[in-house]
Simulated scan of single mutants.
Amino acid sequence: MSRVRGKNTTPEMRTRQCAHAMGLRFRLHREDLPGKPNLVFPKHRLVVFVHGCFWHRHPQCSKASFPKSRTECWQAKFDANITRDSRVAQKLETMAWRVKIV
């Protein structure tokens, strides 16, 4: 678990490269916003979260595997992540930010 990174992951870096290549400018991991979004486009009032399939459990995702041991512990952790993700998105939307999840 110590090797699980929260910042500068491969999917996040690829998303950043695409946005930059399109000429979009952004800020990274702004701590003054709920959930510390991966990318923040202040000019467009847009935040982007780059969520991993394993941790965030997107519906109908084929890459979201489930550990075979301690299943009840993992299920509680995944449920908490899903609840937190929706709570953060609602909070940002009430602050007039658009939320996108990659």
Rank of each mutant, 00 (worst) to 15 (best):
A21W: 00
V88P: 05
S86N: 13
E31D: 13
R98S: 11
N8Q: 02
R3K: 12
V40C: 07
R27T: 04
R25H: 05
F54H: 05
R98T: 11
V4Y: 01
P67D: 10
L28D: 03
K36L: 10
P42N: 10
H58M: 14
P67F: 12
F78V: 12
S65Q: 15
L92A: 07
M13E: 01
I101A: 13
S2A: 10
C61R: 09
H44R: 13
R70F: 13
N8K: 03
D79R: 09
S69G: 11
T83Q: 14
L33P: 01
T9I: 00
A96N: 14
K43R: 15
H44E: 09
M22V: 02
M22R: 06
R25G: 01
C53Q: 06
P42T: 09
A64W: 08
T71A: 15
T15N: 00
M22N: 10
A96C: 15
L46T: 10
G6T: 01
A89R: 14
T71W: 12
S69T: 13
A89I: 11
N38Q: 10
L39M: 07
A21K: 04
S2C: 04
T9C: 02
K77W: 11
T9E: 01
N81F: 05
P11Y: 00
L24I: 08
K100P: 03
Q75S: 15
R30Y: 04
N38V: 02
F26W: 03
E31S: 12
H20R: 07
L33S: 02
S62A: 13
V47Y: 06
S62R: 14
Q75A: 15
P34D: 05
I101Y: 10
K91F: 05
C53M: 07
C73L: 14
R70M: 12
M95I: 07
T94W: 08
R57F: 06
G52A: 03
W74Q: 08
E93S: 09
I101G: 07
R3A: 12
T83P: 07
N8W: 01
G6H: 02
K91E: 15
T15K: 00
N81S: 06
H29A: 02
S2V: 05
V40H: 04
G6K: 02
H56E: 04
I82V: 15
F66W: 13
V99S: 06
H58R: 15
K7C: 06
K100G: 08
T94G: 12
F78I: 10
P34C: 09
S65T: 14
A19E: 07
S65R: 15
R98I: 10
P11Q: 01
G23K: 03
V48K: 00
L33T: 05
P34Q: 10
K7D: 04
M22T: 06
M13K: 03
V48Y: 00
C61V: 07
T10S: 01
E93R: 14
G23V: 01
F41M: 09
T15Q: 00
L28N: 06
S62L: 15
W74F: 09
F26D: 00
W97G: 08
S69V: 12
C73S: 15
V88S: 10
H20Q: 07
